Amino acid sequence: MKVASMVLGIVGSVFGIIAAIMAMIAGGIGGAFGASGASTVTGLGWGALAASVVGLIGSILVSGKPKAAAVLMLIGGIAGIIFVSYFYILPGILLIIPGIMSFFIKPKTDKSSQSVSM
């Protein structure tokens, strides 16, 4: 389950970076044509890029700290959807699902440190 969470998180983060760049391009094109609110779209694209980086950091942390990774992936997925909505639906889903999965990963216990009483 750790590997699945990590792979889904990385794929979601990469798609999130692509979605953020698309939002920034859309804002830039809108600004070039003088559309109102184009700078807002560009700023929200930067926010989505930051959310993708947070999700990527979370997906890297899955093997060591699964609970912290779950929180980071959930924050990244939800924040990205809030920032650029339709551009971030697929990456958001690909970050939220492994975020939920990571909550159920049990940390490995060291069997040599457990004492056995007879």
Results as ranks from 00 to 15, higher is better:
Lys2Met: 10
Ala4Phe: 06
Ser5Gly: 15
Ser5Cys: 15
Ser5Leu: 04
Ser5Glu: 13
Val7His: 00
Leu8Lys: 01
Gly12Leu: 08
Ser13Met: 10
Val14Thr: 05
Ile18Thr: 14
Ala19Asp: 12
Met22Glu: 15
Ala23His: 09
Met24Tyr: 02
Met24His: 04
Ile25Gly: 05
Gly27Cys: 06
Gly28Ala: 11
Ile29Leu: 10
Gly30Arg: 13
Gly31Cys: 05
Ala38Ile: 08
Val41Ala: 13
Leu44Ser: 05
Leu44Phe: 09
Trp46Gly: 08
Leu49Pro: 07
Ala50Gly: 10
Ala51Met: 08
Ala51Pro: 03
Ser52Ala: 13
Val53Trp: 07
Val54Phe: 07
Ser59Glu: 13
Ser59Trp: 00
Ile60Tyr: 09
Lys65Ile: 08
Pro66Tyr: 02
Lys67Cys: 09
Ala68Ile: 15
Ala69Ile: 02
Ala70Pro: 01
Leu72Ile: 06
Met73Glu: 05
Met73Phe: 04
Gly77Ala: 11
Ile78His: 06
Ala79Leu: 13
Gly80Phe: 02
Val84Ile: 15
Tyr86Lys: 14
Tyr86Trp: 14
Phe87Glu: 03
Phe87Gln: 05
Gly92Asp: 07
Ile93Tyr: 00
Leu95Thr: 01
Ile97Asn: 08
Ile97Cys: 05
Pro98Cys: 10
Ile100Gln: 12
Met101Leu: 15
Ile105Glu: 03
Lys106Asn: 15
Lys108Val: 14
Asp110Gln: 14
Asp110His: 13
Ser113Phe: 07
Gln114Trp: 04
Ser117Glu: 14
